[in-house]
Design a protein around this nucleic acid. Structure first.
Lengths: 196, 196, 196, 196
DNA sequence: GATGAATGAGCCTTCATTCAT
DNA sequence: GATGAATGAAGGCTCATTCAT
């Protein structure tokens, strides 16, 4: 059985993750991506409109996934707000765990993409944050969370924290074992630095 | 003859902050930096060896400042660990407050620079994190902080959180008034999400 | 797909000979070479690493040819030393005859290249001179040549003489018809200025 | 006593000889010449119109000297044609002997200058060759030289030969001691390669 | 006159994108 | 669809020249 053409698109996308992570978006050459993907340079343009659209495709995929996971979580009635937060942290880590390159890409290039402020992924990103805020608000309303916390700011705060920690892990997976990191993050997020 | 003026170097550096923040390092053109600085293109090269060295200069300055502030804080005997943490957060915000562009530059380009893993600023950056850890450890030893916290991870966590929050502020200073943000960050960092 | 054609490399090389001869190496613009070659600017870099390597390529080719011709000559048993010298002079002229631009390039740029003292062509150049000396020494040993002549110096002397004469010819082929020049050079080289 | 301003012009010219010889005309930077001359960059332009004119000045001086020496020689009645040729060779070597850099400059840059075909020095250069031819013709007429020699070509031939030999000497004065070289050149020029 | 900082035109080179095969 | 050679726009950097001091 021959590979379907969808496979080629996927292999280009996967190659792009690696090369973008390794060389940075601007340092990455289309030719290198094609080589890693095992296709000809020109073939990249059969599946993607241009270099930028590859990056956007990756971020759209990524944020669609994060968004979907959070949406699912939000809908569950069997979990309290705190459990949802814990679950969300686990989900995010789980999403990146198999692919450190993806984490590096995510950490390194997201700021640049935000500068432009456009792209399909923005939709998912913004909604993701909004849903995050909602969880916090629900928790506050239910008395589970500290009422003095600003939901929007807190969401950003945690989001940035997790990104940095993911970055450390992706750069040196041995020094920062993911299981430990994940647990620690949950704890800090919930309890802060002061002792109970 | 005309004397080489420190003013000109500074104005180029300041222009670079603006243009790098606006267009990103790779999108920034030396010609634009020169224009914003009010000098000729070639003059940039009287003060900086090349484009990259401008960026490194800015980050070195930045981290020297952060590092110095933290070193000073660390040396003070009149403050407890918690007060030091609070003070540090204030200091960082204070450092960026007058210059949102600097915050954007800092957030956008630092990941790229870390990928290379070299540069004078790295020294200050690494020591900065190390000193951060030390404050946390002192606090734990003094019983001020939760002993179950991992100092290194926590420092990274907070660092990432602050970066993200700064980013939000720099992109929309009105929506995220700095004073409020700063206070909130102190609170979350210390108490976490759960109510006391 | 389009196949990388040896023709294109050759046409770039030939264009480079013309443009280098006309404008000098430093005055020559890659864009002009590409234009003369009938290719796009960027195509030059598909076949050559950079401007300098084009020049080196040309000189390597040139000296490989000169070297090969002399090596062949040296190996022949059917010729005496005097005949070899005569033949060599003819060969050199024959090599440049179809291409005055090549002679100009050779005369104008060789000194600059020697200043650097590196490059693949140096190997062939040095060996060429060494073989020239050897012919002279053989002639002396066989009693064909004046024993008081210093082989090394003589080789350089004649080499310089021929270069200058070639230069004159290349600048004004009409005024210095090659056949006459060639004959005259043979005569002077062997007999000098004084009458027999 | 203060240095006269003529000194400054001379020191720039001398510096230019060194720097041009070392780096080549195109590789030489005005700033470097100024530095070697011990003056400010801008001062160079008080004495020379531009970079090219420095080179032309040097070559004009050089050829004026060569020209003058030959003119003097030509006018002497006490010497035969052969003695004049010998004397001329000695004169040329004598002119460069104290300054190898000048010889390098002369050898390396003359071809480039001839490409342009203009400049005051051309006048002296052409007349120099013409006088050289005249000596040869006088010698032929007097029965001192081989009548079958073409005066013009011979002059060029010898000129090129001497240039190359000078080049070798200037690059490695030890390996090619000037006195020996000079004597050898006289011999070859007069007698050629064949034994008497 | 002297200085050297400032200028800006110019060119080599890269690489995203195209297109003949 | 697939290929990879070909394209050419764009920009970092140099350095001869100028000019304010």
């Amino acid at each position: 059985m021959r590979r379907k053409s969808g496979d080629k698109e996927r292999s280009i996308a996967e190659a792009a993750v690696k090369v973008f992570a390794r060389d940075g978006y601007h340092g990455a050459k289309i030719t290198d991506i094609a080589e890693v993907a095992g296709v000809a340079t020109g073939s990249v343009y059969l599946y993607f409109h241009n270099k930028e659209s590859i990056l956007h495709h990756l971020f759209t995929q990524l944020w669609k996934g994060m968004n979907g996971a959070l949406a699912e979580l939000l809908a569950r009635n069997d979990l309290g707000a705190r459990e949802k937060v814990e679950e969300l942290i686990d989900t995010i880590f789980g999403l990146f765990a198999p692919n450190p390159s993806l984490a590096l890409l995510f950490v390194n290039e997201q700021p640049q993409l935000l500068r432009e402020g456009s792209g399909e992924f923005m939709h998912y990103y913004i909604e993701f944050l909004r849903m995050g805020e909602q969880v916090v608000r629900q928790g506050i309303a239910a008395g589970e969370f500290d009422a003095s916390v600003d939901a929007r700011l807190f969401t950003n705060y945690v989001f940035g924290a997790i990104r940095q920690v993911l970055h450390q892990w992706a750069r040196a997976p041995r020094q920062f074992p993911l299981a430990a990191v994940r647990k620690e993050v949950r704890h800090i997020t919930l309890h802060g630095l002061l002792p109970r």
